[in-house]
Amino acid sequence: MSFGTGTTGVYPIAATPFHPDGRLDLDGVDRLTDFYQDAGATGMTILGIMGEAQKLEPEESRAIARRVVARSRVPVVVGVSAPGFAAMRSLARDAMDAGAAGVMVAPAPHLRSDEQIAAYFAQAVEAIGPDVPWALQDYPLTLSVILSVPVIARIMAEHPSCVMLKAEDWPGLEKLTALRKLQADGTLRPFSILTANGGIFLDFEPERGSDGAMTGYAFPDMLVELIDLHARGERDAAHDLFDAHLPLIRYEQQPGVGLSVRKYVLMRRGVIGSDVQRKPGPALSATGRAEVDYLLERLARKDARAAL
């Protein structure tokens, strides 16, 4: 399945469902896989930060990757970021052998200088293999690593196997414009840019040159519609749809409890059986759940998908 420099559309970041006692829910993995595809996703990204990858046993990560790849009709990108390159290499090879379309790699949180960042990704590409297509995750708000436009350009120049930038800097609109300007004048090779940050800036990112979204908002079907509206040039309709969902998108952006909100909405939508996170992880309070319910009720007045 295709995953390359021309990738467009919506690649939802998948949650990882667990049973109430914390065990991995593989039947829930199947339902989520179907849900994202039925929502119109052009691909899927699994084992990211939202997927609680750091809380999984290595064999659990492999089991999820194999299960999703076997079931999916769209390209699957597997997050392989790890503290060490041996674990990164092992998961990447296993995922690609299972039929994954590519992998996603984030910078290690300890990196500071551009030289450290460049050296890290050179070693990462050596570990996973230069023939493996991969997405570069730029997420300084969580990872505390600043990928400047020049260092992104350097990584892209040095590693042709990097086919996508997952852009989730904040603010990031000017960064998108700067990267696309370099590509337009021929000083930077083509690559796909999908944006994240929970969709909080998806009202303007396509206008700045993004190719779509790679984020975990609990209404991926809305994300698909939004990207399609932008592609058709229906600016006002796209902004109207975004504005209707913005209160819930904003509520999901709360540090710490954001994943709890997403899992709760996915449970309310009937996609997963439990909204539990694997420990350590916060749960929504009764008041928090009531607030989300209220936001869904208000959203349902404008978007029937929220009438749960």
Rank of each mutant, 00 (worst) to 15 (best):
residue 155 I to G: 00
residue 155 I to H: 06
residue 155 I to Q: 09
residue 156 M to H: 04
residue 160 P to C: 06
residue 162 C to V: 13
residue 162 C to K: 07
residue 163 V to A: 12
residue 163 V to D: 04
residue 164 M to Q: 15
residue 165 L to D: 09
residue 166 K to V: 09
residue 167 A to M: 13
residue 168 E to K: 09
residue 168 E to A: 03
residue 169 D to V: 11
residue 170 W to P: 00
residue 170 W to V: 07
residue 171 P to R: 10
residue 172 G to C: 02
residue 172 G to E: 08
residue 174 E to I: 11
residue 176 L to E: 00
residue 176 L to N: 01
residue 177 T to E: 13
residue 178 A to S: 13
residue 179 L to K: 00
residue 180 R to K: 14
residue 181 K to P: 02
residue 181 K to C: 11
residue 182 L to V: 08
residue 182 L to M: 15
residue 182 L to G: 06
residue 182 L to C: 10
residue 182 L to Q: 14
residue 183 Q to Y: 14
residue 183 Q to F: 13
residue 183 Q to A: 00
residue 187 T to L: 04
residue 187 T to Q: 06
residue 188 L to S: 00
residue 192 S to Q: 04
residue 194 L to G: 07
residue 194 L to N: 10
residue 196 A to C: 09
residue 196 A to F: 07
residue 197 N to M: 14
residue 197 N to G: 02
residue 199 G to Q: 02
residue 199 G to M: 06
residue 199 G to E: 04
residue 200 I to F: 06
residue 202 L to W: 07
residue 202 L to D: 14
residue 204 F to S: 14
residue 205 E to I: 01
residue 207 E to M: 12
residue 208 R to T: 08
residue 208 R to H: 14
residue 209 G to F: 01
residue 210 S to K: 01
residue 210 S to N: 08
residue 211 D to Y: 12
residue 211 D to A: 07
residue 211 D to N: 15
residue 211 D to V: 00
residue 213 A to K: 02
residue 213 A to P: 02
residue 213 A to S: 14
